[in-house]
Structure formats: C-alpha cells, structure tokens
Amino acid sequence: MTGWIDAVIQGVLLGGLYALFAAGLSLMFGVMRLVNLAHGDLIVLAAFAILAVATKLGLDPFVAVLVATPILFVLGFALQHVLLNRTLGRDLLPPLLVTFGLSIIIQNGLLQTFSADSQRLRSGPIETASIPLGGGIAVGVVPLLTMLSAIAVIVLLNFIFYRTPVGRAFRATSDDLEVAQLMGVDHRRIFAVAMGLAFVVIGIAALYLGLRANFDPTIGPARLLYAFEAVIIGGLGSFWGTLAGGIVLGLAQTIGARIDPEWQILAGHLAFLAVLVVRPRGLFPRAQD
C-alpha cells in the first residue's frame, strides 16, 4: 500500500516537471500557433548551458539559471526574429520542418561539444534531501521545488497574459493577426518577445530536468513528446490545464512503472492516447483549435 501511495505522490510531483516542459510549448502555440519540434532539444540545450555556466563560474545551478535567464531571453528573441518569423504563414510545413531541422542540429551540436556522456546538475545536499511524511513515505525536496516552480511559472504567465499590455498584445495577435497590426502591434516583435519568454521557461524546466536525473544530448525528443502530451491532455489554451495534463501524465508513468518498470514510458503514452480517444479536446479545453 505504501508503495502505491508513494507512486501517486511521485507521479503528481513528476507532473510538475512535465508542466514546466509543456508551459513553453503551450506559450509558443498560444501566441504564434507554432508547434516547435525542437522544444525538447532546446530544454536539453539549456540544461547543458546551465551545466557549462555552473562549472565554468563555479556557481550553484540555481544561481546559474538566474545568470542564464537574460541570455536565454535574448537567444529566444533572436531565434524567433531571425529564423522562425520567416516560416510564418498559412502553410504548416515550413515551421514544422525548420524546427525539425533545428532539433537535429541541436542534438548533434551537443554531441559534438559535450560528447554522448550522461551529465547531471550538482547542487549539494539539496539533491538528496527529503521531507518525511510519516508511514515510511517521504517527499524529495527537488521534486517538491519542481512542482512549486511549475505553479509559480503558471501564475506568472497568467499574470503576463491577462494583466499586462504585452499579454493583451499576445492574445490579440493570436486572435486576429491582421487587426492586431492595425492596433500598432508589430507581430514579429511580439512573437520574438513570446519566444524569449518561452526560453526563460525552458531554462527553468532545464534546471529541474538536470537536477532530477541524468541527461545526454539524445533525450530531447522524448521531452518534446511528454510536453506535447501534457498540453493535449490538459486541453489547449490554458496554463493550468497544462499542469493538470502534466500530473495525469506523471501519474500514468509512475503507476505504470510500479506495475512493471519497463512500462513507465509506455503507460504515459497510452494514457495520452486514451484521453485523445475519450476527450479529443483534452480535459480542460479553453481555446479554439
């Protein structure tokens, strides 16, 4: 029984990580209708960047991610402005294929730079610290922080989207690109700001990816799939839905793993497909497709 309760708790907390993966993807789709096939690889790239900053400057990963945040914002802004804005239009193919190409470039660039070795972010005793809940059940501090960060990120994103001028511009651009321009909104700039913001979220996701488990250059695509599944399970257009989707996915994985360790990933995918069959618009739909 303890094992099952533990699996549920771990699953919910794992959902926090997946919500962080998914928030960036959801933001890009929400503002510019971009489905970014390189999303997972960007998370891994950010994890390596944090690792490099942390080792070179001798910083703790939590501090390193703070240092990296403005850099990530600029990188995201530039990526959108220089490359991805060129792919916008009615045709779905250019953004998909350009980000797919980007995914391959990032994976192999990382392979060339950092080798195929597994890496991990080190942050001292906090990594293994846990809070006992009694009855032999304990909650790891890092998983708990992951969940709290996911909630903080979602609150912040909701604040930006619904309480600030730039958030209004995000929503207006997403509603009607042409009329948004009539309002003086430079959509290319707005998209670049959204990507910069998405990159900051990617940086936070990368921090916890690297603290919780080993990572190497090849694991990006799987993170893309988890992020995507969380978005679809939760329902498009709502950041809180994304958190719910992440938790459903996390639960499916840990419960699957509890039955047979080899079934962890498969169970997550099957849960996603099941939701797709039963509720194709997700559990908490909001936006129109």
Binding site: L83, T87, L97, G101, L102, I104, I105, Q107, N108, Q112
Partner: peptide, 21 residues
Amino acid sequence: FGAWYLILLGTLGILIMLFAP
C-alpha cells in the same frame, strides 16, 4: 563526418525550406 554530417543535413534542410521551398 558523423555529427557534423547531420548538422549539415539539418542546416541544408532549413535553408532549402526558407529560400527554395
């Protein structure tokens, strides 16, 4: 050329998609 070869493939694919779709 291994990884470099794949980087080249990805770059070529992106360039073609952007400039000669």
